Computed example of a mutant assay.
Amino acid sequence: MDYPYTDSNRDCTHRPGRIPIAPGRSRTAGPVIVTLSGDINAHDMPALRRRIASFSSTDTVVDAGRLGFCSAAGLEFLMHWSRQLAEHGNRLVLAGASPALAGVIARLGLGAALPCVSTIEAAAVVLRARRISAAAVPHDSAHYNPTETW
């Protein structure tokens, strides 16, 4: 059985056992938007890791609205991707994750690394707010101590 999904450039078909990843860039200078659909399990990890290696390290919104099942290996993959982006000062936000997936992320305490929001637009707001708050912090870390009291 095939599962249809759509990215911004073409109609695609998902065959069980393969995870389609549809990268795209928003029409503004915003984050990269990546659509995941189907199921993510341990079998898919090598292909997924190879695929994200080709993406730029910039703020990323994962459109998870068409994502079915996400195994523990899938969560590990998302965490790895989030850490990889964080190393470059960027962030990953999940948009449209199922209540089950968002609940697992919350119960495991992964919400800071994998924030879940309802829409792609809400994810862009989260990323924009993070950029604004980061810009307010002095970047000269030699003279900045966040625990210093005045």
Rank of each mutant, 00 (worst) to 15 (best):
M1E: 15
M1T: 10
P4M: 09
Y5R: 11
R10V: 10
D11R: 06
H14I: 13
H14S: 05
H14Y: 01
H14V: 13
R15L: 10
G17P: 11
I19V: 05
A22L: 10
R25A: 12
S26R: 11
R27D: 01
R27A: 10
T28G: 15
G30D: 12
P31Y: 02
V32T: 15
V32I: 12
T35L: 04
L36Q: 01
S37Y: 05
D39Q: 13
N41R: 02
A42R: 13
H43R: 13
H43N: 01
H43C: 08
L48K: 05
R49T: 06
R49D: 13
R50F: 07
I52K: 00
I52R: 02
I52S: 09
F55M: 03
F55V: 00
S56C: 04
S56V: 01
S57T: 12
V61A: 06
D63I: 07
A64Y: 15
R66W: 04
L67W: 03
L67H: 04
G74F: 02
F77L: 05
H80K: 07
W81D: 01
R83Q: 03
Q84I: 00
L85V: 00
A86Y: 00
G89N: 02
N90T: 04
N90L: 00
R91T: 08
L94H: 11
A95M: 04
A95S: 11
G96I: 07
G96R: 09
A97C: 04
S98A: 12
S98H: 10
P99N: 14
A102S: 06
G103C: 15
G103M: 06
G103K: 06
V104I: 04
A106N: 11
L110S: 11
G111L: 08
A112M: 11
A112L: 10
A112Y: 04
P115Q: 04
P115Y: 07
C116L: 06
C116M: 02
C116W: 14
V117I: 13
V117K: 11
S118F: 09
T119P: 13
A122E: 14
A123T: 14
A123Q: 06
A123D: 09
A124M: 09
V125C: 12
V125D: 01
V126K: 06
V126F: 08
L127V: 01
L127M: 01
L127R: 00
R128G: 08
A129L: 10
R131I: 01
I132P: 15
I132W: 11
D140W: 13
D140C: 08
S141T: 04
S141D: 12
A142Q: 07
A142L: 06
H143V: 04
H143E: 05
N145S: 04
N145Y: 08
P146I: 06
